[in-house]
Design a protein around this nucleic acid. Structure first.
Lengths: 194, 194
DNA sequence: GTCTATAGGGCGATAGAC
DNA sequence: GTCTATCGCCCTATAGAC
């Protein structure tokens, strides 16, 4: 047994989410979070670059997605590789549905958290675009495939979050991809869709 | 002639861009910007919500894009309406090529400015998605069309910024849209998805 | 226009693990 | 001894309150 309770980082994340949800992000001070976790303000900043970052777990997702794209079958078209990588997150999120809802509500209530969320999503896109280029996809196709995939994911994630019918995230991703393909299809002629 | 020099806002924008470019964003204080514009710190914050916002002109672009989508021919498919709206920005930017380059370089050097840039782009997407819904496009098609359009714009804008051959922004948008359509086209066969 | 809380960075001290 | 996690205190600039 060490001098400190284990998992300082996890405790900070937990305390932060609870306080942000209960009082709002702006109304919560770092000192408060730290004290709820039995730590000091200074230690908080050792683990997280700023007050927002505590909700965004680091670059693990981006790394995982890049690896998944790297591992995709050689012949797989870029967008399909990206979508498959994103679908592979489904299991991870499936068991965190309520946590994700809670977290999303906090983010939705604060613009500066939305900014952070967007740059995290952009980093997913950047990571996957890099992986695509590694497998020979040229620009701008690589960036477009990655960004499009993330747009699909974003829509799918939202719908998954408030899906009463409990379909999986992967299913929502499939559906959104189909929608995307309808939307980007070259209009044959005066193809008006309501 | 009034009591004050005219265009306080413009002078603040100008001073900020120059100082950010010369010394870096973090190394520049609001007091410094204000003093270069012959104003006080307090006045800066009456014009701009925060230190970042001075680079992002306000919601004019989003409003213009929404209006352009509203004005599109009734029969025009969603993505085409979005792309047409974005192309309509071409003239505006064409005369600001060097200013845009300078500004982009400042933003590229600072993550918090990148966050702000992303939320501004997202607001363009939101505005256009709203306009699409007004013309009867349903979700998630409206959001997907708007987000996809913005992804195309983003890629096109970057390429336009460092295009030695001086093609117009509109031309780059066309090209990127073609690329997008290639990327999202349903692969003809051996469509294996993991 | 003035006042103030807090984010967040710098630097050094401490104390346990190895 | 080194390495690493934690804490303490100082500081400034942002940004909101009054």
């Amino acid at each position: 047994m060490g001098r400190w309770e284990p998992d300082a980082r996890g405790r900070l994340e937990q305390a932060a989410l609870e306080l942000y949800a209960a009082q709002g992000f702006d109304q919560t001070t770092v000192a408060e979070i730290a004290s709820h976790a039995g730590l000091t303000e200074r230690t908080f900043f050792r683990h997280f670059a700023d007050k927002r970052e505590v909700l965004f777990g680091g670059g693990a997702l981006a790394d995982g997605l890049a690896a998944a794209v790297d591992a995709a079958p050689e012949s797989q078209p870029p967008l399909d590789a990206v979508i498959a990588a994103l679908e592979s997150l489904s299991d991870f999120f499936e068991e965190r549905h309520t946590h994700a809802q809670r977290r999303q509500k906090v983010i939705a209530a604060n613009p500066s958290l939305q900014e952070r969320e967007l740059i995290k999503l952009a980093s997913l896109s950047t990571a996957m675009a890099g992986a695509l280029r590694r497998r020979g996809v040229t620009e701008p196709a690589a960036s477009l495939a990655a960004e499009t995939g993330v747009a699909v994911f974003k829509v799918a994630f939202e719908r998954w979050l408030d899906d009463a019918r409990k379909r999986t995230l992967a299913q929502h991703i499939r559906e959104s991809l189909d929608e995307l393909r309808t939307v980007t299809a070259v209009p044959r002629r005066s193809t008006k869709r309501a």
